[in-house]
Computed example of a mutant assay.
Amino acid sequence: MNQKPYLSLNDVKAIAAAAEAEAQAHHWAVSIAIVDDGGHLLWLQRLDGAAAISAQIAPAKAHTAALGRRESKVYEDIINQGRVSFLSAPGLSGMLEGGVPIVVNGFCVGAVGVSGVKSTEDAQIARAGIAALV
């Protein structure tokens, strides 16, 4: 039987703490979501001052990145390049930059989604969180 790594609660807490530290270092009010490889929510944190809608968008970005096993920006780029029919892809709603998969030993074990600032900054926060696993 094949085996693969998975996110433990300690891993999730480490990712969340590092992502929060990155956001706070820049005074960015965001929501941070962490999901498992099936896109199921493991962590949701809305920092003080973050818009309420960001708590809906961050998990959607994370879900999209986990299921697609690639950054959610890939889908945003596909749509922006004219393939608007991709908006009908089943089960995906967070097709905006800011969702980053967590890859361990070649396996996608989950993803981090961030929402609340510029999309490039959302992705920066997500990557900072994931870097805590290394």
Rank of each mutant, 00 (worst) to 15 (best):
M1G: 13
N2S: 14
Q3H: 14
K4W: 14
K4L: 13
Y6L: 06
Y6W: 12
Y6K: 13
L7Q: 11
L7A: 10
K13M: 08
K13Q: 15
I15Q: 12
A18H: 08
A18E: 07
A18C: 06
E20L: 06
A21Y: 00
A21N: 09
A23D: 11
A25I: 02
A25M: 10
H27P: 00
A29I: 02
A29Q: 13
A29M: 01
A29E: 10
A29S: 14
S31Y: 04
S31G: 12
S31P: 08
A33D: 04
I34Y: 10
I34G: 10
V35Y: 04
D36F: 00
D36T: 09
D36R: 07
G38K: 15
G38C: 09
H40A: 10
H40T: 08
L41V: 01
L41C: 11
L41I: 03
D48N: 13
G49P: 05
A50C: 14
A50W: 11
A52W: 06
I53N: 10
S54L: 02
Q56E: 15
P59I: 02
H63S: 09
T64E: 12
A65G: 06
A65Y: 02
A66S: 14
A66Q: 09
A66N: 02
A66G: 06
L67I: 15
R70D: 04
S72L: 08
S72M: 08
K73A: 15
K73T: 12
Y75A: 01
Y75T: 02
Y75C: 01
I78Q: 01
N80C: 05
Q81P: 00
Q81I: 02
Q81V: 00
Q81D: 13
Q81F: 05
G82K: 09
R83D: 06
R83W: 08
R83Q: 10
F86L: 03
A89P: 00
P90H: 11
P90K: 15
G91K: 11
G94C: 11
M95H: 07
L96N: 01
L96C: 01
E97R: 13
G98P: 06
G98R: 03
G99E: 09
G99M: 08
V100L: 14
V100C: 13
V100I: 15
P101F: 04
P101I: 14
V103D: 08
V104Q: 09
N105M: 10
F107E: 10
F107S: 09
F107A: 14
F107M: 03
C108V: 13
G110M: 05
V112E: 14
G113Y: 03
S115M: 03
S115T: 04
V117A: 15
K118L: 04
E121D: 14
D122P: 09
A123G: 01
Q124H: 13
R127G: 00
A128N: 07
A128I: 07
I130Q: 04
I130D: 03
A131W: 03
V134N: 14
